[in-house]
Design a protein around this nucleic acid. Structure first.
Length: 870
RNA sequence: AGGCGCGUAGCUCAGUUGGUUAGAGCGCAUCCCUCACACGGAUGAGGUCCGCGGUUCGAGUCCGCGCGCGCCUACCA
């Protein structure tokens, strides 16, 4: 226990690191594994191991930590499992870039030495992420930290691959895939980013074998080198006589058959004739299969025309495009050229234009997995927050295509498939010594798996799967996943597919999808724009608590977060406010204060009962907010309670009476409860203040406040609002009239019911202190008094003679106008027979009462004006 | 092309199952360095809730259409 006084200045840097170490070394981050505590588990969306955290990570870390700390304080056996992802392409690209600077390549280095470099790079960078996570206060269990290429997780990947393969859900096939000519690897459909671009469309003619020509259109003229058919619609009269005949390829020694295909061809489009390149276009690929056409690959892995391209061989695809157009022109076959808007696929990682390429790859048959994944979301076993994402999720899964999972990279999980010289294929968990069929030596498939394949196993592979570990039994399915909506398909859907299929259970009971952190003007943050915010920088500038509070308060469900740095200043001011309030309280304490639990409403004054009632409501709504991931609401509730209820009102009321023990007890007790409530959002400052106030247990381990109906007192709160409004009204009135705030005013309550009036007149000391009320009574107004409408009460104020100025008359007039509008509206409604007949009786009664009150007030106010005029 | 989301105060956003007088934070203006806090206090100005139509006694809230913005999905040559 410490009673040394809080420093005057709030200086987060002076204690943040200290508390983090204390928490960590106390074991608070690790679950206790005690059986009577319900488990609660979050697995972290693993950041790229060699990456740097951006503010979006900070958001997710904050929200995860908020939830995990809250649940831990509620008594759950909480585990937040951290880790990182090897991020195949992204990381490999970084190291390759480094090699390029050294004037070498991975091929020159060879696979083994290249991988050594990769691991070295990983080792150098791996602490980046955890250091940043720790600075933010993340209460992860570092003893359970995982990396996707760890032995355990690699074993999980192998088990998953072998299982799916044995079930026929993973297969190898020659297909059209997305090929990145720069990364030299296949990509899944999701890794291709479509961008609307202004392209061109060319028309050119194929001369027919006998006579005449047929005109086709294309956006990629170079692909004509791989054309093996020309298709027309079977019902198209223009071409019906030509089907079965051949055209002559202008540059290659090839006859090109004319075929009829109703699926490929839209007779309304262009000339109604389509060139067919089965090896380089997805539609044409299907057409090729239907018609058993020849598949001619004209590109190499670099995106250059290969030998099949005749005179164009060796040219880059874009150079070849120009060359083909030129050559067509030279032969007099070019028929037209026009601008054409179209969506072009780019590599997600390097932005190179992706090429559809015929290639032998490994695929996951996604449909059967998708069915289960759809089911668990539809029946609520996985709750999606916000739920409007369900539609998007369903649409994608309902139309899911098979997933290409092999990558021609070196950094990743090597595909556990082996072949011998005889061509026997072996897919197994343990590396075989030789082919079990023929006994010959085997070679492993050189490719690695898509990173997302291993990420898809993350919620259970990190807990020990495929072993039946204690952790897996206790914490799986995990409780909630918190991540960005941008990886809904990449990651979330795949975890659900893989989890349901491989473990028979959902990977998490709920998934909360956060928005994107944008800059102050709503633009996406990017390094090129230079509008990024470095989490570590803002943490050291504003303190981790302010950064966390800002992000959490901004996190409205399903919305992006426009982050203005000034918000952080604002919430640092909030932290400072808490700090100073605590200093005040600490100053007043005498050491004999009782815990709130020992107090009973009967022993307390109205102000104490009021703040305790407000506290109880706040506890209720904050818990409710966390419960449904309304981080914004929870933060606003807390902000409002601490600043505008506790500091603005209660502290001011308590100032004069801290000699009373129960006042000090409430002062301290409410502050401590507020600190506990705030702890999940602002762990450091709350812990530091709690310690200084003599709270022995660390807040991280303290029970989170539960709603306590004992303190809720709505009647008192209504009385208290009247008091507040009276005080505010008097201040406002003085300001308007130009009277000093200290100038005493005698108050007569005129149109106020007895109960309320009784309360207010009992609060003379408080009213004197807060609003310099000279006296207050219920009764008829003195002749010279000025009638004011304050907080819905009619009060008469006695002022020095002649103090009713022009400004005030204007203000009264304004009030009258507003009331009169109100009156007219009420009268109109009440005279409408359909309103009185159809609206619920309590609404009608309410309107009647209001009208009566408004009418009286209007009268009084008019009298006041007249009196002052006369 | 389809789907989703958004359009409320100068800015960024809340607004529960429709209940009539629409809120917050920041910013702005005026006053105040009162013994926790100027990263503060008090007061105030500021809104045709995108437009039109409909349902209803009553619409920021529900429905339709339109306009604008954003995002996702998509194989149209």
């Amino acid at each position: 226990m410490s009673s040394d006084s809080l420093p005057t200045r709030y200086d987060p840097e002076s204690f943040e690191g200290r508390w983090y170490s204390k928490w960590e070394s106390s074991g608070a981050f690790s679950p206790t594994l005690e059986g009577d505590r319900p488990p609660f588990c979050i697995v972290i969306p693993p950041p790229n191991v060699t990456g740097v955290l951006h503010i979006g990570h900070a958001l997710q870390f904050t929200l995860q930590d908020l939830i995990i700390r809250w649940r831990r304080m509620q008594g759950y056996d909480a585990l937040w499992l951290p880790g990182t992802d090897h991020a195949g392409i992204a990381t490999q690209v970084m190291v390759e870039r480094q090699l390029a600077k050294e004037g070498t390549t991975r091929q020159a280095l060879g696979r083994d030495r290249f991988l050594e470099r990769m691991w070295q790079w990983k080792e150098e960078h791996k602490d980046n992420i955890s250091r940043q996570a720790k600075a933010l206060g993340s209460s992860c269990d570092w003893s359970r930290e995982r990396f996707t290429l760890d032995d355990g997780l690699s074993r999980a990947v192998r088990r998953a691959f072998v299982t799916l393969h044995s079930q026929g859900l993973i297969y190898r096939d020659q297909r059209l895939i997305n090929w990145c000519p720069r990364c030299h690897t296949a990509l899944s459909d999701l890794e291709v980013v479509h961008k609307e671009q202004q392209g061109r469309m060319w028309d050119f003619a194929y001369p027919l074998e006998d006579e005449g020509e047929i005109v086709v259109s294309t956006t990629r003229p170079e692909t004509m080198l791989g054309d093996t058919a020309i298709a027309v619609h079977p019902a198209d009269g223009r071409y019906s006589g030509l089907v079965g005949f051949h055209a002559i390829h202008p540059f290659l020694d090839r006859r090109v058959p004319l075929i009829a295909d109703a699926e490929l061809v839209d007779p309304e489009f262009g000339t109604g004739a389509v060139k067919v390149t089965p090896a380089h276009d997805p539609n044409d690929f299907q057409t090729g299969k239907r018609h058993e056409l020849e598949f001619i690959n004209i590109l190499d892995n670099e995106g250059k025309i290969n030998d099949a391209g005749g005179q164009f061989a060796g040219q880059d695809r874009f150079a070849a495009r120009t060359a083909v157009v030129q050559a067509l022109k030279a032969k007099g076959l070019l028929r037209g050229e026009r601008p054409h808007e179209m969506a072009i696929g780019h590599c997600q990682r390097c932005d190179t234009i992706v090429e559809p390429l015929l290639s032998r790859q490994w695929f996951v048959d996604a449909k059967p997995l998708a069915e289960k994944a759809l089911e668990v979301v539809r029946d609520g076993r996985v709750k999606v927050v916000p739920d409007f994402w369900v539609a998007t999720y369903e649409h994608w899964l309902e139309n899911i295509q098979d997933w290409c999972i092999s990558r021609q990279l070196w950094w990743g999980h090597r595909i556990p498939a082996f072949t011998c010289a005889q061509g026997h294929l072996l897919v197994c968990e343990e590396d075989p010594d030789s082919c079990p069929t023929c006994g010959q030596a085997v070679e492993q498939d050189p490719d690695v798996l898509d990173t997302w394949f291993s990420s898809g196993l993350w919620p259970f592979s990190t807990l020990g799967w495929p072993d039946e570990t204690e952790d897996l039994k206790r914490f799986y399915p995990t409780s909630v996943l918190i991540t960005g909506f941008d990886i809904l398909f990449f990651w979330v859907a795949r975890m659900i597919m893989m989890g349901c299929h491989l473990t028979g259970e959902v990977p998490f009971h709920a998934v909360h999808l956060t928005g994107l952190v944008r800059d102050a003007s709503g633009d996406k943050m990017s390094k090129t724009k230079g509008n990024t915010i470095d989490p570590l920088e803002v943490v050291s500038e504003y303190g981790a608590d302010a950064v966390r509070f800002t992000l959490a308060a901004l996190a409205s469900p399903g919305r992006d977060l426009p982050l203005d740095i000034r918000r952080m200043e604002g919430y640092r001011a909030f932290a400072t406010k808490v700090w100073n309030a605590a200093r005040f309280v600490q100053m007043k304490l005498e050491g004999d204060e009782q815990p709130l639990g020992d107090l009973s409403p009967a022993d307390l004054g109205p102000a104490e009962r009021w703040i305790l009632s407000r506290l109880a409501h706040t506890v209720r709504s904050v818990n409710r907010a966390w419960e449904c991931y309304r981080f914004d609401e929870g933060c606003h509730e807390l902000y409002h309670f601490v600043w505008h209820a506790y500091c603005d009102w209660y502290l001011e009321l308590a100032k004069g009476v801290t000699d009373r023990r129960e006042v000090r007890s409430v002062l301290r007790g409410v502050l401590l409860e507020a600190l506990k409530l705030l702890h999940p959002v602002m762990p450091y400052i709350t812990e530091e203040i709690g310690h200084h106030l003599g709270h022995e247990e660390m807040l991280i381990l303290t029970r989170y406040p539960d709603p306590d109906g004992r303190w809720e007192d709505n009647e008192l709160e209504a009385d208290f609002s009247a008091l507040q409004e009276l005080v505010a009204g008097l201040r406002s009135y003085r300001a308007m009239v130009g009277l000093s705030q200290r100038h005493p005013i005698a108050v007569t309550l005129v149109g106020v019911d007895e109960h309320r009036a009784g309360f207010l007149t009992s609060q003379t000391d408080q009213l004197e202190q807060l609003a310099a009320v000279a006296s207050i009574r219920l009764g008829t107004a003195p002749a010279q008094a000025i009638h004011e409408l304050l907080g819905g009460m009619e009060v008469a104020l006695e002022l020095p003679p002649g103090s009713l100025g022009e400004d005030q008359l204007v203000r009264l007039q304004k009030q009258i106008e507003q009331l009169d509008r109100n009156r007219a509206g009420l009268e109109g409604r009440l005279s409408n027979s359909s309103f009185t007949a159809k609206a619920p009786p309590e609404v009608v009664d309410g309107a009647r009462q209001q009208l009566a009150e408004v009418t009286t007030r209007l009268e009084r106010l008019r009298q006041t004006i007249e009196a002052s005029a006369g």
